[in-house]
């Protein structure tokens, strides 16, 4: 099993964190993982993204040419990365900020993550809703592991946000139910 995931969105939507939480949870479940960010000036302006690979085997390049999954949290990142999805790849799209209009063959799952997050009381947890939605479709990491990571990696001044992030994750996991 090897799963290659590109996660992209505006800076501030928490795409780096989404990737880190996913990679950390997979590592704790004993998998090989890599997390590779767009870095430096590249992250300014347009889109921010990171690449996560989860595998049962040692990972060669952490750079993803063709992804199994694209999690796109806004329109520009969908435009930038849609050609990088494998033919039968999975697209998880934030329909609050983007419309698919995709080529045939792609499996697109669209939900208004931003609006749902807003409804939960914190627009910044849209990333965890998207992660929940992804994990409900590709069961590569247990939700419990992810919840544990969320609470473990929160810095002291962010401990108050653990509960809502965990709730968002669960909310996301129910969307495709």
């Amino acid at each position: 099993m090897t799963e290659k995931i590109i996660i992209a969105g505006f800076g501030g939507q928490g795409v780096m964190l989404l990737g880190k939480v996913l990679a950390e949870a997979a590592m704790r479940e004993g998998r090989f993982v890599t997390w590779f960010p767009a870095y430096g000036a590249e992250v300014r302006g347009g889109t921010a993204h990171c690449m996560v690979i989860i595998s049962d085997q040692e990972i060669g390049s952490p750079y993803i040419g063709q992804a199994d999954t694209l999690i796109a949290l806004n329109g520009p990142s969908l435009e930038k990365f849609k050609s990088r999805l494998e033919a039968k790849g999975l697209l998880i799209l934030n329909s609050s900020l983007a419309r698919a209009g995709l080529d045939k063959g792609l499996k697109a799952v669209e939900h208004p993550f931003t609006e749902i997050a807003s409804g939960l009381g914190n627009i910044r947890v849209a990333n965890m809703i998207a992660l929940g939605a992804f994990l409900s479709l590709k069961n590569i990491v247990g939700l419990e592991s992810v919840e544990k990571v969320i609470s473990d990696i929160a810095p002291e001044d962010k401990k108050g946000l653990i509960a809502i992030n965990q709730k968002a994750l669960r909310e996301g996991a129910r969307l495709n139910g």
Partner: peptide
């Protein structure tokens, strides 16, 4: 190199 510096791994 930049990959090795930037990437996270266990």
């Amino acid at each position: 190199d930049g990959v090795l510096g930037q990437m996270m791994e266990p």
